[in-house]
Design a protein around this nucleic acid. Structure first.
Length: 299
DNA sequence: ATTTTCCCCTGCCGGC
DNA sequence: TGCCGGCAGGGGAAAA
């Protein structure tokens, strides 16, 4: 599903193609996309706007116009944003919800099978810092996101570290997949109370988060299911996932069988040996396998 | 205040 | 073969 690396991949592809372009046509075929806003008002607010910058905040994709207004898009589960040099041909987007046309003839479609995705117009003059406050937290790839800062964000929280990292108001952009991967990288069990990691573990986790996000961005995101990048292509990160979706496979580090359960209503994958259980339960004897690295997985 | 639960929505998959 | 229940999970609202 689209998380920070997937949205960042799309952003990077749209930026050079849309910057300076003016929107000449908008069609919203699914009113739920812009709800509770009025479709006609949403469309007319976009016509004639020139794109100044294409940005990202957490999992939000942002088209910033020279008027100061901002179009925010969120892909949620199955949303797709697809740029084309020309208009989309009929049926090009199976679950089409909106089309944006630009002055050079190019187009951007928003497709979304599950219809969880949303679009908002943020009026000019809105202070974005204030706008995101309380809902969208730290950008994990920015300089301020240090191990100390991560520890501060988690301080006093008793919820599972997995749940806390999924909370967008704390750290923005992490989803189910990259949280599993980051916790594995840091040797931290997903059920550990968020505020009770050691200094060393916060450090490892901060590094793990950044490392996995950077690797994923370099790979163009993960196309496990429906994700496609801004040009309709698949990402390559799925081949580098170490634990997520790997239930029953050997851990790429130690060979122990990867476990799965539900944490925070989400399917959660971890290595029972590399990420020791907070209750101290022993790793079952016989679950170890000879050290072996899966194909396509770098240790 | 923080934490937990439920719900939104629909394609897809496994089981019968 | 076809029907159907259950699953997937980002995020927000309501409930605890």
């Amino acid at each position: 599903m689209p998380e920070l690396p997937e949205v960042e991949t799309i952003r990077a592809q749209l930026a050079p193609r849309l910057t300076g372009r003016t929107i000449t046509a908008v069609a919203v075929t699914d009113p739920l996309l812009v709800a509770p806003a009025d479709v006609d008002e949403f469309c007319s607010a976009l016509i004639g706007r020139a794109v100044r910058r294409v940005r990202r905040r957490g999992k939000y994709l942002l088209l910033e116009f020279d008027s100061g207004a901002v179009l925010a898009l969120h892909l949620r589960m199955t949303g797709r944003v697809h740029w084309r040099a020309g208009p989309p041909s009929d049926g090009a987007e199976r679950f089409l919800r909106a089309v944006f046309g630009f002055d050079d003839g190019s187009s951007v479609t928003f497709g979304d099978a599950r219809r969880f995705g949303r679009a908002w117009m943020i009026p000019a003059g809105t202070g974005l810092r204030e706008y995101w406050r309380g809902r969208v937290g730290d950008e994990p790839l920015e300089d301020g996101f240090t191990a100390r800062r991560l520890a501060e964000l988690m301080r006093g929280r008793r919820v599972a570290i997995k749940t806390a990292l999924l909370n967008q108001a704390l750290v923005a952009g992490l989803g189910n997949m990259y949280v599993d991967e980051a916790l594995f990288a840091a040797h931290v069990h997903p059920l550990r109370p968020a505020g009770e990691l050691s200094e060393r573990e916060y450090r490892a986790l901060q590094r793990g988060i950044r490392d996995r996000l950077r690797v994923a961005i370099a790979a163009g995101g993960a196309s496990i299911d429906t994700y496609r990048d801004g040009l309709g292509e698949r990402g390559q990160m799925q081949a580098q996932l170490r634990v997520h979706l790997h239930e029953g496979d050997p851990c790429p580090r130690c060979g122990t069988i990867i476990a799965k359960s539900v944490v925070g209503q989400r399917g959660t994958y971890w290595c029972p040996a590399c990420q020791p259980d907070p209750t101290g339960a022993a790793v079952p004897v016989g679950s170890r396998r000879p050290r072996r690295v899966r194909e396509g997985v770098s240790g």
